[in-house]
Design a protein around this nucleic acid. Sequence first.
DNA 1: ATGAAAGCGCTAACAA
DNA 2: TTGTTAGCGCTTTCAT
Lengths: 344, 344
Amino acid sequence: MTKKASSESKDQRRLQMADIARLAGVSTSTVSRALSKSPLIGEETRQRIEALAKSLNYSINVGAQNLRLKQNKTVAVVVPFDTASHQHLSDPFFLGIIGSIADALTERGYDMLLTRVSAEELDAAAQIYDTGRAIGVILIGQWRHHDQLNQMAARKVPIVVWGAQIPQQLYVTVGSDNVAGGRLACQHLIDAGKKRIAFFGDTQLPEVAHRYQGYCQALQAAGMAVDPNLVLSAAFTEEGGRWAVETLLSRGVTFDAVFACSDLLAMTAINLFRASGLAVPQDVAVVGYDDIALARYFHPPLSTIRQPIAAAGEALVSAVLALSEQNTTGPQLLETTLVARQSS
Amino acid sequence: MTKKASSESKDQRRLQMADIARLAGVSTSTVSRALSKSPLIGEETRQRIEALAKSLNYSINVGAQNLRLKQNKTVAVVVPFDTASHQHLSDPFFLGIIGSIADALTERGYDMLLTRVSAEELDAAAQIYDTGRAIGVILIGQWRHHDQLNQMAARKVPIVVWGAQIPQQLYVTVGSDNVAGGRLACQHLIDAGKKRIAFFGDTQLPEVAHRYQGYCQALQAAGMAVDPNLVLSAAFTEEGGRWAVETLLSRGVTFDAVFACSDLLAMTAINLFRASGLAVPQDVAVVGYDDIALARYFHPPLSTIRQPIAAAGEALVSAVLALSEQNTTGPQLLETTLVARQSS
DNA sequence: ATGAAAGCGCTAACAA
DNA sequence: TTGTTAGCGCTTTCAT
């Protein structure tokens, strides 16, 4: 009947600062100061309290602390999954980036909140910020979300997007230099003596559009024309690869190389070419994009354009932290490199 | 000089409930009730307040709400990285599990905090719970952390581990049936007429030890002896694979098949066998473990033991939620299946 | 060097 | 139906 009765019977209450204070015979202020290493505290008191806390596995409640301090060391990483072109968290490249972001955040003492949101309700990403769960958002995969992203940026949500820099863009992007990457890949195939180089990739996506630009530049620089018959708008999936290969073969045009805009696409293509009796790289040379871990385990080891994953995490994190501190940051273009292996 | 001066000049203060209340001409309680769809509120007031909040992009501050409600809908996912056997967030299989956990949590309205911690300071995982940042922890990768995990469980940290169930275990594990998986793999090779089946994997790890058990069981059931010369304690890495293949070849023993305890290991092995002039599967049949996405893109498409990734996420999440609600849960063994492709 | 008291943004008795 | 008030667990003036 007394107020004591209010505590639930089965769950032993979590320890809190008041408990430590009582046990140590001091006030909560003193405990707070001791645990935050305030210079106001006596050395021996501090040690006593620290020892007590450690022995009881007490740690300051971060939620309460954040509320009081009006701070928060959490960054959200959002992976939109396109309900249509089903490439979500299973893409090895994106997974790699997430890992590198995790590293970069950990290094700076930040926590990472990982969320998947359907592309239709992308403002869920902004919500994470609005609710104060995170001080900023890193969005992996620009896809076709340009307008929604612009809206968020317009209302000052600290958001950084992994993707391509495109005109009229209010949000900050970090991405690899896709134009250079496309040029590198195509140039490499030209250098290998290839004359009829196909392009696999959905040019609706900003990043792919840039890679296509690079592809065209390299062809033009070599005095070769862009043949629309060799350009296949394949999604980043296995089905995309299958469709591209079948379509290409059915068109009956000649080709001796393919630049595929993702390693997955490249691998699917190689398998299908082989199944059709075409030897890689002799009959068809193939270059991929991303340099995922498995590219070099592939047979033949896959030539590809490497995106600098570790640098990506760093750049994304420092951009979002800058934004969250009201500093302005520009877009970042990371360098791509050609990794020539046996598929070309 | 007045109190107004205390507000920082450059950062426009975040909107809060009191602001909405003032703008709507009601009290904060009313706003709170409206936004939480309390039945006590008038329908039209509710709509008015909801509309106002939406138009201003106001969302309830989750931190403050959690503090007041003594709740928290966040689960931590911890990936220890062994500084020695460097397999961390880059393992495609673990990455897949993380994705499936993210799905399972999202479905239940929980947030996911992703953290990498070095294996040496594994109690950082417990800290996440102690500080109230998460109501429970899912740990990916049992490795050799058995004792530390037991200690955490002993002090009632709600923790669920992806790994193998072993004796004297206080913590809850969810994992695939590794013994059955090992048996399946080996049996399949025996059925294919193989007589000298090697085993690649570090049997110090509980899960691998179980797979080894299954391997031995299958051999014995077929009346075949376990030849120690064919058992290679390879780490889950490329170097591990290289070492295993080289050692096996250098021993000069005959062998016609390999059961590798991870797909990565299997792929490395296949590449090296091929480089040594051995044909897969004719000279050496290879079966892997995990069925990572790239297994079927491999050449030849990799036969492997599938671990049920989607089910894994579900099971891990429901276990950790049960624990966090003081319910007891037992360990979960998920079914493994053989996926026979062309490498065997 | 330490304690008392106010308040971070919110919710829920309780009162009206 | 709505407002007033107390308090979630913590930090920090301000006083001692």
